[in-house]
Amino acid sequence: MKWTKTKPIKLILVLALTFSLINGCAKPEPVVQESIDLDPVKQELLNDINSLAEINDFEGLSVSAYWVSIHSHFRAPLNINDLIRFDRGGFHLEGNEIKGKLELFSQIEMNDIQLARIGNFENARYYLVIESDKDGKLFELLLFNGWSNMSINGVEIEPSKKILDAIYPLLTPGARYELRKYSKWF
C-alpha cells in the first residue's frame, strides 16, 4: 500500500470528524443517582416523579391545574374537590401538548424530597394533576395556604423548589404567575 504524506493528515481529520459527530451532538449521559437513603416512601415517590420524564407516548395523557389565590380567605377550609369546583382560571393540556415538558422531572433527586410531618390538608390553594387514561393519576401536586408544606401524590413533603421548577414548563402564564406567589419557595 502506498502511504503518501497527506494520508496521515486525512486520517486524523476523518477520525476527528467522526469523534466530533459522536460526541459533539450526543445528548449528555443521564446522571446516575446514587441513593443511600432507603426510605421506601421517599424511594417510591422519587420513582414516580422520575418516571414522568420517561413518558414517550402522550396519547391519553393530560395535565390539569386548578387554583384559587394563595391570599384568599374562606370561611371553611378548601380541599381538592373545592378547588376543582371553583375552577377559576385553571387550564388543561392533552396529548402532544405535553411533549417535551416533563423532562425536568428526571432531575429530581432523593435530597429534594424531605418528608414532613402530617399537617393540615384542608387548606388547599393550588392543585396540579397529571393523569393517564390507562394508569390513572400519575402525579398530584397540592399547595396550601400559608406557605406550609406541599403534598406530592398524597405524601406531605417540605417545600421543594426543584419540583416547582419541574412543573413550570407545563404551566400557562396565569398558572405561572399564581405559582410565583409562592415565591418564598423559589
Binding site: V68, S69, S72, F86, R88, G89, P173, G174, Y177, E178
Partner: peptide, 14 residues
C-alpha cells in the same frame, strides 16, 4: 394581556 379569576369571580389582569 392575560387574567386569572379571583375568588370573587372578578378578573385580575396582568
Amino acid at each position: 394581556k392575560d387574567f386569572t379569576t379571583n375568588t370573587y369571580g372578578n378578573k385580575d389582569y396582568f
